[in-house]
């Protein structure tokens, strides 16, 4: 049986519709995840609420030291946003956005959808975690703000109530001497689901010591996670080769990867151990080259 499609023109309309229609109603924006779930009967919604025409939820802005990414922003927009370009401290965001599906999918899929779908392998999530992003959820009874790392509960499960809509994800400007890098391992370069993804972000002091470190991992646990032990090892010291290697070993204490058709748990652990130091090294190189 098909579903009834409801076109919401405003956020208030969409949340009210969702509240009244109940948990069998689902939101659709780009549709690149939901359509597959409907085709495979993973989801059989009775009602689908189309968010794609709601004004004001699309686009990236930068003001007052904060980057705001509207939930309906397409991956392609993140990929091509000049302030996230190569040579900027935010290049890791572009690196993640440009490996979400293929070019066609990036013209369709939205940032809000990527978050709401809550896949442990979602490519945009690790860099946003590494940027300490927070998001707004709007429901029939108001707005709540939460840090992105408090959003995910498990594979495809989040704290979002069925009638709540992600409206924006945002993060503060990075301090000087910062950089973020993103690496993804898959069987091929394009159109591939991550076997492991790593986002690293470093902020250094003028004397080379590490002021702030973030390491976020995708497809390494039931949700995208931060490797906090690894971060703690880096902070306060000079991130030389020995410290970076120690931090990569510490990252393994945070992961609990699965065996599946794409890779074994053991191989995923090897990838974490290999990619964490590589991502940290890229951050260090980027900070150095921006400085010189």
């Amino acid at each position: 049986m098909g579903f009834a499609l409801h076109e919401a023109k405003t956020l208030a309309e969409a949340t009210m519709l969702a509240r009244d229609l109940g948990p069998d109603a689902m939101f659709i924006a780009g549709g690149t995840d939901l359509i597959i779930q409907i085709n495979r009967r993973v989801n059989t919604p009775r009602d689908v609420i189309d968010l794609s025409r709601i004004a004001g939820l699309s686009g990236i802005s930068h003001a007052g030291g904060v980057f705001r990414i509207g939930a309906l922003t397409k991956h392609k927009t993140v990929e091509t946003y000049p302030a996230f370009g190569f040579g900027t401290p935010y290049a890791g965001l572009r690196e993640a956005a440009r490996v979400v599906g293929g070019h066609q999918i990036r013209n369709q899929g939205t940032v809000g959808g990527n978050l709401a779908n809550a896949s442990p392998a979602a490519d945009l999530i690790p860099p946003l975690l590494a940027l300490d992003a927070e998001l707004d959820l709007v429901g029939p009874s108001g707005t709540r703000t939460l840090p992105l790392n408090a959003f995910f509960l498990g594979p495809r499960r989040s704290v979002r109530a069925h009638d709540e809509i992600i409206t924006e994800v945002r993060f503060r400007d990075l301090p000087p001497l910062s950089a973020i890098a993103f690496l993804k391992a898959g069987r091929r370069k394009a159109m591939e689901i991550s076997i492991i993804s790593v986002a690293a972000r470093l902020t250094l002091e003028a004397d080379g010591r590490c002021r702030d470190a973030r390491i976020a991992l995708g497809a390494a646990a039931p949700t995208p996670i931060r490797a906090r032990e690894a971060e703690a090892l880096l902070e306060g010291g000079v991130p030389d080769e020995g410290v970076v290697a120690m931090s990569a070993r510490a990252a393994l204490t945070s992961v609990s990867p699965i065996d599946d058709v794409r890779a074994s748990s053991e191989y995923r652990r090897l990838l974490v151990a290999a990619l964490v130091p590589r991502a940290l090294k890229i951050c260090i190189d980027r900070i150095k080259s921006a400085r010189s």
Partner: peptide, 21 residues
């Protein structure tokens, strides 16, 4: 959404028609 064989243009942009309602 993994092969591109169904690519069409909607509003002048290339999209996958298999992932479009």
């Amino acid at each position: 959404g993994q092969c591109g064989a169904c690519t069409v243009h909607v509003d002048g942009k290339r999209v996958l028609s298999c992932l479009t309602l």
